[in-house]
Design a protein around this nucleic acid. Structure first.
Lengths: 194, 194
DNA sequence: GTCTATAATTAGATAGAC
DNA sequence: GTCTATCTAATTATAGAC
């Protein structure tokens, strides 16, 4: 492990870190090269330029997120438990979502190529969550009035917004508060009172 | 109405627009001056520099947001209806939240001065929503298990995250879907089934 | 107050040596 | 493949005229 051998690899990793920390417009090729320990020639040999390198970085970040989410959502448990596990999974909350944050980047949104992996990843995530809500509805754990697509969107939006609240006050607890509020609303016991 | 007379006024307005569209790191003094139709001297006469001007712009945006939210939340109606009115109020969804988007800006978060108005505004909003949830709980419209602070955080997070989802796919409908999902979870009728 | 001129620094990319 | 040198434009700010 540690620093990768190949320069192209180090460039992608450095870009991933910087996109997460500073976004696309806030990341300069200079900063990438410094962090990767590579020269300009190395970057322009492997990639066509900043957008091309960023695309490679975003795609890898998206892949990793999907793998991590799949591991949590495919774990055993009731639908509610799996959603709860996803909402409560360990996160570096103050760093924000490495995929979701890109939607606040004007240059990313202006490029169909850069926006595509973001759109696909969040769309996939919504679909996964919707399937679980649907499952819970069929099992009677969730009320039939809950639309799976809508509920999934609410779950994902609460997560993404939780990052916003936590970063605003500089305290990860704000994220947890929003998640607890959502879990209370989703809780089967509460929707089927005594 | 129209373009303000005073240059300082035009500078603040231009900065407000650009911060909303491109964020802090994506906004250059040059772009501000172009949009405001002002020269460099004008800007450095009224403001100490980019951070100072941005602070003035952020404060005004925060003021306007508070006024607009107050108008909706203080309107007549049950607690659920007032929250629903807030969630469904007209928004330019794809532009995102002018305050919330700043939390994704590394330079804003790195500055206590710039982050303060963002933190205060979202904190105030959470407080207002929590008071309404509390009210609804006392009236029996919301279940006693719903913690007002947590529920308010969930409502605000869903909004902020709704912008993320909508911007990712370039469709405001994604925002509405998340809102409908939240309203279904909050709906008194669903929490007190037949 | 507002302007233009200037300047030091960085962004983003190219050329060509090794 | 990787490096350094170079280049054009933009960023952020200062100086000084009007």
């Amino acid at each position: 492990m540690g620093t990768p051998e190949r320069a192209s690899e180090r460039l992608v990793e450095a870009t991933r870190e910087l996109l997460w920390e500073r976004g696309y417009v806030g990341t300069s090729p200079r900063a990438i090269l410094d962090r990767a320990g590579a020269g300009q020639g190395s970057m322009y040999h492997h990639f066509k330029g900043k957008p091309d390198l960023a695309l490679a970085a975003i795609r890898r970040t998206a892949e990793e997120l999907r793998a991590a989410v799949t591991a949590v959502l495919d774990a055993p448990g009731t639908p509610y438990e799996r959603i709860e596990a996803y909402l409560r999974r360990e996160r570096e909350v103050l760093r924000g979502c490495p995929v979701g944050r890109l939607t606040m980047d004007p240059d990313v949104l202006a490029s169909d190529a850069l926006r595509a992996p973001v759109d696909e990843t969040l769309g996939w995530l919504r679909g996964r969550l919707a399937a679980i809500v649907q499952e819970g509805r069929e099992q009677g754990q969730f009320a039939p009035e809950l639309d799976p697509e809508e509920t999934a969107a609410t779950v994902l939006a609460t997560l993404q917004g939780g990052y916003v609240l936590a970063r605003a006050c500089g305290d990860p607890a704000a994220f947890d508060t929003a998640v607890r509020g959502l879990l209370a609303l989703l809780r089967p016991a509460h929707r089927q009172p005594l």
